[in-house]
């Protein structure tokens, strides 16, 4: 790097080591870049494929006039009329009942684990939550079937599905709420205690509000997750083509169950309804997930 005015003294004694990257390292860099990009593509391809297929095949169904407002009551297998109103209602009410049960229990359990739990009981609860988180949905469904239907003699109903969903939702809610509560700095608790505020009030009025945004987001994501569960509806409730508003009695449709039952429909309308229901389910879950991110954005603690 000599310049016109430079003398030998201005020149570096040896070539600066930063001047050029060694060939070996350049090759490694390129190989790594290609591998990582490839892995990304491989991961994205099935996702896009599924989405495109579901949208392309489901779109005609969900755009039809009756889709969102009518059930399949009285619709023959080969007919394209009717809609999935009854199944949307079923999916939502089953998830709603599960949420009403699982959220208070889950949040209280998380509060116990974070704020009170010391010693063997807390470790046992925490261990059980881990076990529960690993339980496959079919096992949860069979447990409810065995415990409530076989032993206690309860009839098959949407409520039984909700109970199985509670088992699947609880560990998600507990773990998430636990994380959020642990994020609340201890110095906030200490300064509340130092004001002479009792512990339970500190938790209720200081700790929970601080953790609220993340907790609600987690609950929304948990709801989104259980709405697609199929095993509980296959085991615990019969399919109905008409609307049944009563979750405690009789058969009730839900979107996964409707898809399953249409599988045995040999007519083309069956395929049409399966793809429509699939797209509908994805849209509903999307709404909950977008809702979750909106809530976390707008209820975040202002700086």
């Amino acid at each position: 790097m000599t310049t016109a005015t430079g003398t030998d003294l201005d020149r570096p004694a040896s070539e600066p080591p930063t001047r050029q990257i060694a060939l070996g390292r350049r090759i490694k860099d390129h190989v790594a870049t290609v591998l990582v990009s490839l892995a990304f593509l491989i991961a994205v391809v099935p996702l896009v494929w599924v989405l495109v297929t579901v949208i392309a095949r489901g779109l005609p169904a969900i755009l039809s006039a009756d889709w969102w407002g009518y059930s399949l009551s009285g619709v023959l297998p080969e007919e394209y009329e009717g809609g999935v109103y009854h199944a949307i209602y079923g999916t939502l009410i089953q998830a709603f009942i599960a949420t009403v049960i699982a959220v208070p229990v889950g949040i209280l359990a998380a509060i116990y684990l974070v704020e009170y739990g010391r010693g063997p009981l807390a470790r046992a609860v925490s261990f059980m939550v881990d076990i529960l988180a690993g339980v496959p949905s079919i096992v949860a469904a069979l447990f409810v079937f065995a415990a409530f239907i076989s032993i206690l003699g309860a009839p098959q109903s949407a409520f039984m599905v909700s109970l199985a969903l509670v088992l699947l939702m609880l560990p998600v809610v507990i773990r998430n709420t636990e994380e959020m509560l642990r994020l609340v700095p201890d110095r906030l608790r200490e300064s509340a205690y130092a004001l002479g505020i009792p512990k339970w009030k500190t938790i209720l009025r200081i700790v929970l509000p601080t953790a609220l945004s993340g907790t609600v987001t987690g609950v929304m994501l948990a709801i989104a997750r259980i709405m697609g569960e199929t095993a509980p509806v296959l085991v615990l409730v019969g399919y109905a083509r008409a609307i049944n508003y009563d979750p405690f009695e009789g058969n009730m449709a839900s979107l996964p169950l409707l898809m399953y039952s249409e599988l045995s429909n040999p007519e083309a309308a069956g395929q049409y309804r399966i793809w429509g229901a699939a797209l509908t389910l994805i849209i509903i879950i999307m709404i909950f997930q977008v809702g979750a991110s909106l809530i976390s954005r707008f209820s975040a603690i202002p700086k």
Binding site: R187, L188, E190, G196, T210
Partner: peptide, 21 residues
């Protein structure tokens, strides 16, 4: 009661810690 004691004896901590909500 520890709560009653703390109502009588207040405390200010090293890090400022207003309640964020």
């Amino acid at each position: 009661d520890a709560v009653a004691v703390r109502r009588t004896i207040g405390m200010v901590f090293q890090m400022p810690n207003p309640f964020p909500t």
